[in-house]
Design a protein around this nucleic acid. Sequence first.
DNA 1: AAATTCTCCTGAAGGC
DNA 2: TGCCTTCAGGAGAATT
Length: 270
Amino acid sequence: MPELPEVETTRRGIEPHILGHEIQGLIVRQDRLRWPVPPRLENRLRGQRILRVERRAKYLLLQTGTGTLLIHLGMSGSLRVLPPGTPPGPHDHIDLVFQHCCLRLRDPRRFGAVLWTSEAVAGHALLRHLGPEPLGQEFNGEWLYRLARRRHGPVKNFIMDGKVVVGVGNIYASESLFHAGIHPHRPCNRISLNRYHRLVEEIRRVLISAIRQGGTSLRDFQREDGRPGYFAQELQVYGRERQPCPRCGQPIRQRRIGQRSSYFCSHCQR
DNA sequence: AAATTCTCCTGAAGGC
DNA sequence: TGCCTTCAGGAGAATT
């Protein structure tokens, strides 16, 4: 499921194909995504050039001269760059058509979104209240420690909260906490500043490493050229219940924390 | 205010 | 073989 590394992998993959190119058309086969695709969106897009291909949190932002197309991959979405006219398969809901290629959104579960704003994109309702980027400067141990003072929920939920830090989803939350040696269920206000420094370091390390591997493909995710990401083979705990902990050999445990499956080693993580 | 629950959706997996 | 139930999950919205 697309988390920050998958979205960044996608951004880097599509950018060279579409940057500076003119949008010829938009084909919407299914407009019922998480929110309805805006009606008559093609009229706004046709003739516009892609001026920037950016990412904020898990949103892809395709900036044109008149506004920005926001794309979210939800949990099963992927974007591919295909030759124009390639016949669509199941769940290929939307094509952004260029002269030389077609950018195609496939999203079996339709939790993704395609939206438009003609205002400054940072002020959009979906982006306005987001926390810092995990790979940016203002995300650090002090930030986490300070926010955690007035909370008490499990640290895993804490770092998956987009107001605390963006882009850390279920897979990378479990992985980062394992590397930091912190139990996912530990109350976030019972963690020292030093351990938060370490956690920030591990979140960054895991995300950067996953980006380098092209993300994690468990089921639906594929890169813009159809290849999978290869970080799944680096996963230490996610999806590995009952298998031996890579560090101490005791069985990895699975437990639901905040409605999400969480994986951890109860010996190595405290 | 923070925490919890609900909601959208499809496909895989398990039970009988 | 086939039909049913259950589960997975991003994250905003609604509720407690």
